[in-house]
Write a protein that binds this DNA or RNA. Structure first.
Lengths: 233, 233
DNA sequence: TAACCATGAATTGTCGACAATCTTAAAGAA
DNA sequence: TTCTTTAAGATTGTCGACAATTCATGGTTA
């Protein structure tokens, strides 16, 4: 029995392992977005039976990474601009709530610990200027900590087990680049300050704006791709 | 191939049927909340193999009606006061969002159709005074229509396939009674008016209050039960 | 040529049996 | 007695095979 790094899921069964492995491959793009999934093929690849694989597929479906149709099969989710809007609308509402609850509930030592995390980010950010992946993980960790601090188990599950992998997928494959990195850091700082002052209303507002900015950043990437396609014609 | 009445799910496979049947039994309390689930027993009862049953269990898990532990088994979710708070916090955020989007998007004829639905509710409410189930279904249908009108597919799925059965479970088993029925009607009316005026901000606020009132109503039932228990000691 | 229908191949859904794990209860030691 | 250990029983996890459905290919007909 081991533990997964990102979602802190306990890995006990074979299907757990396949689930975590496939999730990583889908999020990182090793298994291409929008591609069809063949059960016999993947079962052979992961060295498990179809029953075990299907168990994993079920769980991938419930975190929105694949889509199933009866008697037809599975597809990896496609990262479209439309879905980006939909998902981020939901994310904004839920993480906004989480942030407000965190501001209400968070103890002083928890806030200090979070501040310390942010300082770590500042260090590594200066070192790894431009490189996005570590910031990626760190940023998600920041959001993850706030979600946890909401102390609402249902919300925590909905976000960290449900929505977060899809968001990571957008961010890993559509990348966060350029000056956005340091701006995001400042926004994180402002959010922490609001939480420290137990100003739930402000914390919620700032988090929603922060998420909205992140959405615009990815949206710009979509626009860029669309423009390139048009130019190529 | 047939269709389910509540979530409009297409029923094509045997596991679909088991899923819908079990869902109804759990929501209505035929399968007791908090009770342990035996796979061999239920498989025999529904006349399917364990593989088919487990497929259904997976889907019940993703709509929060049962909880699984590896190598241990399933339990039906327990309706606690703590969970009520958590779920309704999430519900408030998501349906608030849905209501705002509906106010932004909804066309005039859609609004008219919704008003008509509300008039129907008024009729049946007068006839079936006190009886809560029909109002229950009607009320959920009202919320369902607004969720649909948000036109956000991800949000629609999250609410109608994910959260709504659990909310129904609370409402069916913890009941909505007394003067709450007619108050709820007035609140629905106010929400529709806000939507008709495309006042998203107000619509969201009113929906959140409406949901909060509904929560208090159920909470009161919990308090009542707790008081009765204390008196019995 | 285009539309429709059959036939076969491939894929998904379902089943019963076996292996691995947990639970329970009895037996033994401190 | 109380705690630990162990063995039996029951439950869940996993497997390979069969049945049902869908998809692709080629042939037939208007």
């Amino acid at each position: 029995m081991t533990q997964d790094a990102f979602s802190k899921t306990l890995i006990t069964t074979a299907s757990d392992q396949v689930f975590v492995d496939m999730r990583r491959e889908i999020v990182e793009g090793s298994i291409e977005q929008g591609s069809k999934i063949s059960e016999p093929e993947l079962a052979k690849r992961y060295g498990v039976s179809r029953a075990t694989l299907r168990e994993a597929l079920n769980r991938l479906e419930s975190c929105y990474l694949i889509e199933r149709k009866a008697n037809v099969g599975c597809r990896v989710v496609a990262l479209t601009a439309e879905r980006l809007i939909e998902v981020y609308q939901v994310r904004s509402a839920l993480e906004g709530l989480a942030c407000r609850l965190a501001a209400d509930n968070m103890a002083a030592d928890e806030v200090q610990s979070l501040k310390q995390l942010l300082n770590q980010h500042l260090q590594t950010q200066r070192v790894k200027e431009g490189e996005s992946y570590y910031q990626e993980a760190g940023d998600l960790d920041f959001h993850y900590r706030i979600i946890k601090a909401s102390k609402n188990e249902h919300l925590i599950h909905l976000l960290s087990n449900g929505l977060y992998q899809l968001i990571r997928m957008y961010r890993v494959q559509m990348g966060m680049v350029g000056p956005r990195v340091s701006k995001a850091f400042d926004e994180h700082l402002a959010i922490i300050n609001a939480i420290e002052n137990h100003d739930g209303e402000l914390a919620e507002l700032l988090m929603k704006r922060h998420i909205s900015a992140s959405q615009s950043n990815i949206q710009a990437k979509f626009d860029l791709i669309a423009a390139q396609k048009k130019a190529a014609q």
